[in-house]
Design a protein around this nucleic acid. Structure first.
Lengths: 112, 112
DNA sequence: ACAATATACCTTGTGATTCGAGGTATCCAA
DNA sequence: TTGGATACCTCGAATCACAAGGTATATTGT
């Protein structure tokens, strides 16, 4: 019954999250703003995108979560596991492959 | 209600199609193979993606279609309209913006 | 003291997009 | 004559991203 492969260009939110978490552990709300910032406002992903992705990354073992009370609120800090590093590498390779493909297409003769 | 904006990274099939049609008119089946070729096999879009996009581009005035019998079959050749050139320019700008944003994110300190 | 905004987490419904599989028909080669 | 390539098309389902909401606490402004 039509077991669809993931859309050819999905996984960018995942990629960005994993990449940010290489440097240091961060929490969800922070990641939302951080993505906007590090992409120079080019990409803005809402909480409705980020939280579910974080949860799924945790479920599949790419991230581990740590609850940490700060003030009166609770933050959930995420950090990369070994698997997460592998996953990041894969996504990064995928991205470069398709990014390169598109670039080749756009640069071929016959300017726009 | 929730009138969703288009997903932040869609429109790549559209972009590739328009870009290919800058050089010369082409027909659907040809475009399917051509996309695979010009992207160095990095991107492979099936007919189920291409045909609907072509139809919608025709409907909104970016492309014009010309039916041409070849042998016993009929090919539908598409070519860019003036609007299509504008649309291509926009999509190309969008793409470069987000592509650049992701690159910035991936290249920031703290290697993978 | 009170209201508004910011922080911080979350889920749900919907909409847009892509995917895979199928359907039709013709042509050519084994 | 069977099968593969060409050439068009559509449909159902999976996937994803989006907006909007909901909860709760802290901070800032008035």
């Amino acid at each position: 019954m039509a077991k669809s492969n993931p859309p050819f260009m999905s996984g960018v939110p995942e990629l960005l999250l994993l990449r940010l978490l290489v440097n240091r552990e961060m929490y969800g709300y922070e990641l939302v703003r951080s993505i906007k910032e590090v992409t120079g406002e080019a990409i803005s992903l809402g909480e409705g995108v980020i939280y579910p992705v974080l949860h799924s990354l945790e479920r599949n073992g790419s991230l581990k979560a740590r609850r940490k009370p700060v003030g009166g609120r609770t933050r959930v800090y995420y950090s990369l596991t070994k698997q997460g590093h592998g996953r990041l590498q894969d996504l990064q390779d995928d991205w470069r492959r398709i990014q390169g493909g598109i670039e080749t297409a756009l640069e071929s003769p016959g300017h726009a």
